[in-house]
Amino acid sequence: MATIELGAANFGDTVVKEGITIVDFWAEWCGPCRQFAPVFEEASNKRPEITFGKVDTEAEKQLAGEAGISSIPTLMVFRDGILLYNRAGALPAAALEELITAVEGLDMDEIRKEVEAQGGEIGDVSEPN
C-alpha cells in the first residue's frame, strides 16, 4: 500500500483506528525529509497491513502545531489508537523495520493497562522502562 496524505480532516480518524499507523511529518524544503521519503515509501510497499501516512507540515501548520512538531522529519507510530513512538529524525531502513517489528510484538493489553494507569499516553517503545 502506498502512503496516504494526512491532514486535519483525516488525521484523527486515521490514527485511532485498529492496527498500526505510522505518520511522517515532513516538508518539501527539508533535506533529511527528502532522504527519508524513499525509505518510508519502500516500507509502506513491503507492509500493506500497516497504514503509512504523511503530513506536509507546510500545508498543515495547525495540525503540526497541535501535534507538537518542532523538528522534521518527525515519525509517530500509533497502534490501536495509542501513540507509542514520537521522535524527530530520519531512520535508516533497517531501523524503521526494527521499530515496526517492536511495535508488532507489543502486548497491547498490557500497554492499555499501562496507559490507563498513567492516565494518558505511553512512552517511547524504543526506550526501556
Rank of each mutant, 00 (worst) to 15 (best):
M1L: 07
D109W: 09
A8G: 13
K61F: 13
E49C: 10
I122C: 14
V55N: 01
V125Q: 00
W29A: 10
L99Q: 13
A88C: 12
M108L: 06
G53S: 03
K54E: 02
L99V: 14
R112G: 15
L91Y: 09
K113M: 03
I72W: 08
I72G: 00
L91I: 02
S70M: 03
S71E: 09
G120N: 15
V15E: 02
E60W: 09
T21V: 12
T51F: 04
M108R: 00
A37C: 06
A95D: 08
I111F: 13
L84Y: 03
E98V: 11
S126A: 09
Q35G: 12
E104A: 05
Q35R: 15
G105P: 03
W29Q: 03
D13R: 12
K17Y: 13
D107M: 01
A117K: 05
P32N: 11
P128Q: 12
S71A: 14
P92R: 02
V55A: 04
K61Q: 14
F40M: 01
V125Y: 07
F36V: 02
A37Y: 02
E121S: 15
E66N: 04
V15S: 07
A95H: 15
A59S: 15
E121G: 14
M1E: 06
D107K: 05
R112C: 15
F78W: 08
V16Y: 06
E18G: 12
I69E: 05
A59Q: 13
I111P: 14
